[in-house]
Simulated scan of single mutants.
Amino acid sequence: MPAARFLVRGRVQGVSFRAGTREQALALGIEGHAVNLPDGRVEVLAIGDAAALDALERWLWQGPPAARVDAVERTVLPGQAASGFRIA
């Protein structure tokens, strides 16, 4: 299954960004994770069909209302398998 890693920069920690990402991912049928990084970014690993990954990327550029997204970096990964969507 197609997979991508997104690094989201801006005011994305402490604003329910990971929880919102999980909600969007599950609605799109995407599995993976959203994790706060020590440098203030959020890493999102997303596994799902290409259209769903594109839709998630569009959402990541907005995030929840309290977020301010400055950049989203997408890296295409080799196909992967996962189970569910976790936040950490």
Score class of each variant (00 low, 15 high):
69 V>G: 13
12 V>I: 06
37 L>V: 11
75 T>G: 07
48 G>V: 03
16 S>T: 08
13 Q>Y: 04
48 G>D: 09
1 M>L: 08
68 R>H: 12
39 D>A: 10
11 R>D: 05
64 P>A: 01
2 P>G: 00
72 V>I: 12
14 G>A: 14
80 Q>C: 02
47 I>F: 00
78 P>F: 01
51 A>I: 06
13 Q>R: 09
54 D>L: 00
21 T>L: 03
23 E>Q: 15
62 Q>C: 10
6 F>H: 03
14 G>M: 14
43 E>C: 04
9 R>L: 15
65 P>N: 03
76 V>G: 01
63 G>T: 10
65 P>A: 09
81 A>E: 14
88 A>K: 10
84 G>T: 05
83 S>D: 15
37 L>T: 13
32 G>P: 03
36 N>E: 03
19 A>G: 05
14 G>P: 01
15 V>T: 05
40 G>C: 10
50 A>E: 14
29 G>H: 03
79 G>N: 06
44 V>W: 02
27 A>Q: 11
7 L>H: 12
3 A>Y: 09
21 T>D: 00
53 L>R: 00
75 T>H: 08
12 V>H: 09
43 E>G: 04
71 A>H: 15
11 R>L: 15
3 A>Q: 07
14 G>D: 09
1 M>P: 00
22 R>I: 00
22 R>V: 02
21 T>Y: 02
24 Q>Y: 06
56 L>R: 05
86 R>E: 14
22 R>S: 07
65 P>Q: 05
57 E>P: 03
21 T>H: 01
38 P>H: 15
33 H>N: 11
69 V>H: 15
87 I>N: 04
45 L>R: 09
85 F>A: 06
22 R>T: 02
19 A>P: 01
39 D>L: 06
14 G>N: 10
4 A>Q: 08
73 E>S: 07
49 D>N: 11
46 A>C: 03
87 I>F: 13
55 A>E: 13
12 V>M: 07
87 I>A: 06
72 V>D: 11
6 F>P: 01
8 V>L: 02
83 S>R: 14
66 A>M: 12
87 I>P: 05
29 G>I: 07
50 A>M: 08
3 A>T: 04
37 L>S: 12
50 A>D: 10
55 A>F: 00
68 R>T: 13
84 G>V: 04
22 R>Y: 02
88 A>T: 07
14 G>F: 11
32 G>T: 08
12 V>T: 13
34 A>M: 10
15 V>M: 00
7 L>Q: 10
21 T>P: 06
45 L>N: 04
69 V>N: 15
82 A>P: 02
25 A>C: 00
8 V>I: 12
68 R>V: 10
29 G>F: 05
52 A>D: 11
73 E>A: 09
54 D>M: 09
39 D>Q: 04
68 R>Y: 07
58 R>V: 15
6 F>G: 03
58 R>T: 14
51 A>E: 13
77 L>P: 06
35 V>H: 15
20 G>P: 12
76 V>A: 12
6 F>V: 01
81 A>V: 12
63 G>A: 06
38 P>E: 11
50 A>S: 11
9 R>P: 15
